[in-house]
Computed example of a mutant assay.
Amino acid sequence: MAKLIVGLGNPGKQYELTRHNTGFIAIDFLLDYYQYQNTKEDFKSILYFSSINNEKVIFAKPQTYMNLSGEALIMIMHFYKIKTEDIIIIYDDKDLELGRIRFREQGSSGGHNGIKNIIKHLGCEKFNRIKIGIDPPAENFKIVDWVLSKLSQEEIQIIKSSVNNIKNFVKDFAAKTEFKKIVSAYNK
């Protein structure tokens, strides 16, 4: 049985390195660290197949655009027979300071359209999440303009540093440890 780590973002050059693509940035960093054996485009996603401690892990970057992320997720889960408790969704959170990490096992979408669509497709709010802060909108920014604004190189380094701090979390999760137990140990 595989584990599935999904980073949320928008496909296309114009969205690269925007705040809303923090999930893609996180996946790229984790792939650099863990490597992958092969990749393919399928199920409206780019899939990367890896092995962490001899456990099969699929990293995914949905190509559906943020608001339809659930479409890609549900197709991957059905095809690879992945249970809800075996997924982690990594995404941006405008209510957290830049680079701050927050773990959640369940909850509402918090206004995040990608998470809203995932909740709709899963039919529940109970799934593992890693939220990465992108800071609240700067003055004079509408939320949509803020999340689609480009990150500076310094901000990208802060996000990468945060992801570096969770790479062992991903390893423990791949080892079939319960999300709740890892969060409890990680938060100490």
Rank of each mutant, 00 (worst) to 15 (best):
Y36I: 01
Q37H: 09
Q37T: 13
Q37E: 15
K40V: 09
K40A: 10
K44M: 14
K44N: 14
K44D: 15
L47F: 03
L47R: 04
F49S: 05
F49C: 08
S51H: 10
N54T: 05
N54V: 00
K56H: 11
V57P: 01
V57I: 07
V57L: 03
K61L: 12
K61E: 04
Q63I: 11
Y65D: 07
N67Q: 07
S69A: 07
L73G: 05
I74L: 14
I74Y: 12
M75V: 01
I76Q: 03
I76V: 14
M77A: 01
H78T: 12
Y80S: 06
Y80F: 15
I82P: 12
K83W: 00
K83D: 15
K83N: 15
T84L: 07
D86C: 02
I87A: 03
I90P: 03
I90W: 02
Y91N: 10
Y91K: 06
D92T: 11
D92A: 07
D95R: 13
G99M: 12
G99E: 08
G99D: 06
I101W: 00
I101N: 01
R102M: 11
E105G: 14
E105Y: 12
Q106A: 10
Q106Y: 04
G107E: 07
G111S: 09
I115V: 15
I119Q: 12
H121G: 00
L122F: 09
K131D: 00
D135S: 15
P137Y: 06
A138Y: 00
E139A: 15
N140S: 15
V144A: 08
W146Q: 14
V147G: 06
K150N: 11
L151V: 04
S152L: 05
S152I: 00
E154K: 15
Q157G: 11
Q157M: 14
I158K: 14
I159M: 01
I159H: 02
